[in-house]
Design a protein around this nucleic acid. Structure first.
Length: 390
DNA sequence: CGCGTTTGACCAGCGC
DNA sequence: GCGCTGGTCAAACGCG
């Protein structure tokens, strides 16, 4: 939108470029962990490179404290089906570029803040509560499915909306019964949860991530023949949503965007984690770690699998004003894309292709769906980069 | 009957 | 103000 956001996008493209072991030196956001990492010449995306020294991408993000397990990326299992090669890219989408609000994780030098991708929605200019605290599950107020989204925003909005609804009930206005949509007040801009997106090569749109989702909408995507589906976690009091769309340019690529944070463990225990107790410092499968259940796996397992499979994943990561990864809220992280985290992405991922990292990048860059909204400039610049490589 | 999907309508935000 | 677009709602429907 403006130059500032452009700069932020630029930072993102810098990080993407690192997938090809190319580190751009320009316009890295000062103070970001990505910036510091990028300036040090590291390669975020090539996990195989990091295997040798035992520091992967998640380490760089500060996720090493979560014992980022391999199961999450163990997509070459027997459950793998059709896709022979698959790649994955994550994008965390913040409400805005406010950063550095989250306290550091155990490793202060790897705080996963850094890249603030621009928020397309109008959530940024107005911070309703002005708080860095993450949204808090309001279990008492989320009983009506029609208000889950609002209840998931923030308490101020929830309260206001509840009051509105209460007023509506008292008024019993016949006009209201005509359309009960929208007791939303003006001047209350939608507060969006931190978002977390990743791309996968899959023939199935709706990835089985261990949570139960209910589809509540579908929209045609501009410039894409494929629709975008909207899902909401079916668990009561959990307002996590996800959007799934297929890339128009690469129909084999599915872009899944999670929004919000599960307030409950996955109803389905992930494969390979059954019966494994949480680590002492990890109170639950859905807390602490942005990748939830995976953290239950021993770290050596992670390393071992890395060495065996040499997976290569590509990420785009950014933080958010309310993205407080180490916050105690929800028992650990304010942002907990645990829908992704269950390690149950029983989708057809096949990491391990030496080119998957760059292909993931290119997939992202080609996408004209959700990610186009998110990181439009990434595509542009990476295409330029592609040309340079060709 | 419960749960999930489909789908048209509606709403809010944004750009012009 | 108007139109476009993304996002959401909720009735209708399907399925087990």
């Amino acid at each position: 939108m403006d130059g500032r956001e452009t700069g932020e996008l630029k930072t993102t493209i810098d990080q993407i470029s690192m997938a090809n072991s190319t580190v751009f030196s320009d316009e890295i956001i000062p103070g970001s962990s990505f910036a510091s990492f990028a300036s040090s010449g590291g390669s975020i995306f090539d996990m195989s490179d990091n295997n040798q020294r035992g520091s992967g991408f998640m380490d760089l993000l500060g996720f090493q404290d979560f014992n980022m397990p391999p199961s999450l990326f163990d997509f070459s299992s027997s459950q793998t089906t059709s896709s022979s090669s698959s790649s994955m890219m994550m994008v965390m989408m913040p409400p805005h570029h406010q950063q550095q609000q989250q306290p550091p994780l155990a490793s202060p030098t790897s705080t996963p803040t850094a890249v603030a991708l621009p928020e397309r929605e109008s959530t940024t200019s107005e911070v309703l509560n002005g708080s860095t605290a993450p949204t808090t599950p309001n279990s008492s107020s989320i009983s009506s499915s029609s208000n889950e989204a609002a209840a998931n925003k923030n308490e101020d909005q929830t309260t206001t909306k509840a009051q509105d609804e209460e007023a509506d009930e008292q008024n019993q206005d016949p006009e209201k019964t005509q359309k009960q949509l929208k007791p939303k007040k003006k001047n209350q801009k939608r507060q969006r949860e931190p978002r977390f997106a990743f791309m996968t090569k899959s023939e199935v749109d709706n990835l089985d991530d261990g949570y139960r989702w209910r589809k509540y909408g579908q929209k045609a995507v501009k410039n894409s023949p494929y629709p975008r589906s909207y899902y909401r976690c079916t668990t009561a009091a959990c307002g996590v949503k996800k959007r799934v769309e297929r890339s128009s340019d690469d129909p084999s690529t599915v872009v899944t965007t999670y929004e919000g944070q599960h307030t409950h463990p996955s109803p389905i225990m992930p494969r390979g984690t059954m019966g494994i107790a949480p680590l002492p410092d990890q109170p639950s499968a859905f807390s602490s770690s942005p990748f939830g259940v995976q953290q239950l796996l021993p770290h050596h397992h992670y390393q071992q699998q890395q060495q065996q499979q040499q997976p290569q994943y590509s990420y785009i990561y950014s933080s958010a004003p309310s993205l407080n990864i180490s916050s105690p809220a929800y028992g650990g992280g304010a942002f907990n894309p645990s829908s992704f985290s269950t390690g149950l992405l029983q989708e057809r991922y096949n990491f391990g292709s030496p080119s998957s990292s760059s292909s993931a990048v290119s997939n992202l860059l080609r996408d004209h769906g959700l990610l186009q909204d998110i990181v439009p400039q990434i595509r542009k610049e990476a295409k330029e980069e592609d040309h340079l490589h060709q």
